[in-house]
Design a protein around this nucleic acid. Sequence first.
DNA 1: ATGAAAGCGCTAACAG
DNA 2: CTGTTAGCGCTTTCAT
Lengths: 351, 351
Amino acid sequence: MKKKITISDVAREAGVSISTVSNYLNGREELLRPDTRKRVERAISDLEYRPNPVARQLKTGNSPFIGLIVPSVANPFYGVFAQYVESAAAELGYHVLLGNCSRDPGKEKEFAEQLFNYGVRGVVFGSSLVDVSYLSDLIKEGLRLVTFDRSSAQGEKMAFDAVGVDNWQGMYIATRHLLGLGHRRIGFVSGPIKTISRINRLEGYKKALIDAGIEPDPDIIWQMDVSAGYGDSDAIRIGRKATQQLLASPNPPTAIVAINAMFAMGVYSGAREMGVSIPDELSVVGFDDIDLAEIVNPPLTTIRQPLADMASKAVELLVNRLDGKHDGDGICHTFPAELVVRHSTDKPKAR
Amino acid sequence: MKKKITISDVAREAGVSISTVSNYLNGREELLRPDTRKRVERAISDLEYRPNPVARQLKTGNSPFIGLIVPSVANPFYGVFAQYVESAAAELGYHVLLGNCSRDPGKEKEFAEQLFNYGVRGVVFGSSLVDVSYLSDLIKEGLRLVTFDRSSAQGEKMAFDAVGVDNWQGMYIATRHLLGLGHRRIGFVSGPIKTISRINRLEGYKKALIDAGIEPDPDIIWQMDVSAGYGDSDAIRIGRKATQQLLASPNPPTAIVAINAMFAMGVYSGAREMGVSIPDELSVVGFDDIDLAEIVNPPLTTIRQPLADMASKAVELLVNRLDGKHDGDGICHTFPAELVVRHSTDKPKAR
DNA sequence: ATGAAAGCGCTAACAG
DNA sequence: CTGTTAGCGCTTTCAT
């Protein structure tokens, strides 16, 4: 276990002073005479010197890390997102510190605090509760953040940037797709609608219905009652139950739009147990085009978000803030959603 | 943006010296007279003081982080694993730094180096290439590591611990299950068999066959040729292609065991395209009981690994090393695999 | 029981 | 161009 070598070892080896080495290290190479530089370079590589980032951070206050808060990487949607964020950050010289916070504001705050404490100045906030005011203290102290999948609320004055897909439009075209196929009775299946993105999705669905002259029927808009918790692992179970109830009702829907792909899987499961076949007897469309959507039987018609682009934009906005390149009001980037038609949707069967 | 408050602010506020506060902070409270302690406590909470972990680390060399290297959290298997590691680590007071390294030794080494550089002394190695010698330099310098899903190779002397499931036994019972159902011609579908875990799985499969008096037939042991790359995202595609070829062969298998759940999904997909139904015309069993296995149609019969237990054991072993509680040869913990029978396996259809 | 002082490894004025 | 120096915030002997 060889001793850690430091900047002064390098200086000694190269026969220069510490600050000369430091200058070299910090891109002020022009300051060095060519031969001095050569010597420094040789010393560094001979000694296999690696600057200690901890010492550097203590001195400068700059951290090479940004934080990323997601509900759970066990959910592949966020796993994929995390990966995109990671590579976007890497390109800009940052590492990402990942925190799974289960959409729990307490955990999120605690994690953000720890990060801040550790010198991290920026975090990508991949959850989407309506209210992020519980973070305002940290923002005041200098934490920069950008939210993902949380478009701004009405007239809200934001001190942070946001990226997101156009949830409203996504659900609108999803519903229109079903309408276009001839469906008139279209159910909606969701967990608790507590996030702005979900609110917008519901609105898009309703508007499409209304535009088609159909009055949204609360009886077939199924949203889990709040008490049941937030877990994504529950999504399938809830979706299944919702579907069974919907299908067993007096006037069942011929199609269902699900708040996301996991719920869509729940719908599949519920339909299967009720013996109704997709898409012959029930059409379903999901949201979030995760790999799973393509694999299942039948492959799921769904709304796709340009995740990779969204991730790089999020990181870009954040880093701009960190670099002081942008300091004004929050800017909000909305990406278009896209309908991917596969085999879970078809014309309603004549009865 | 209020100024960061430091230990000396607290000392001043409490009217004591810096070292007294430090003593308090580091659990040497017995050294403080009760009233002094009270004053320090008050000062800390009044000022909302939080020690700066960077400074602390610079001084002590101890990092509150451990690393976790996985192929990709976009793969839900590793996403779930990462989550378990995270909570196990949290319980022991560590945070985890996650790196997606795509099973690329170069990336893995680079990431490990960066971590080490940053003062991280331990990493959980959730990939499983046969050869980890490219990390031996770091180990020599003091990096501790524990591997996941990489049982030791023959007689290998390890300087690190390992946890893993009994891959051999898992595939053995999976194959026996099929055999017990009456299958005699059982195919094997896998990507490149470059990892110890995969080698063991293949061996378990072969042994079960041999024990049943069947000679393994290379014609139906399908493993992707090496040149095609490592991506997990390719698993489905490869599995699909393999299945199509297998099914189109002169003497097709009546059952397939897949190297993991993703490949099993590929098998599903291939079978569907060939119009052969599961389990009526083809039985399939997978490995890794990810959520997906339960969702798909039909639900997948598969081998389950006790992931949560494995994750905590991995962290425990690592932390013991870090704390110097264990310093001998590598110890290798193998967990039993369990067969979960669902609906993708059935008796072979009489022809 | 408490305090003074010496760094951990590095950066950034400032002087020369 | 290069070197001296004063910290960043904290821990840890070593005195007192």
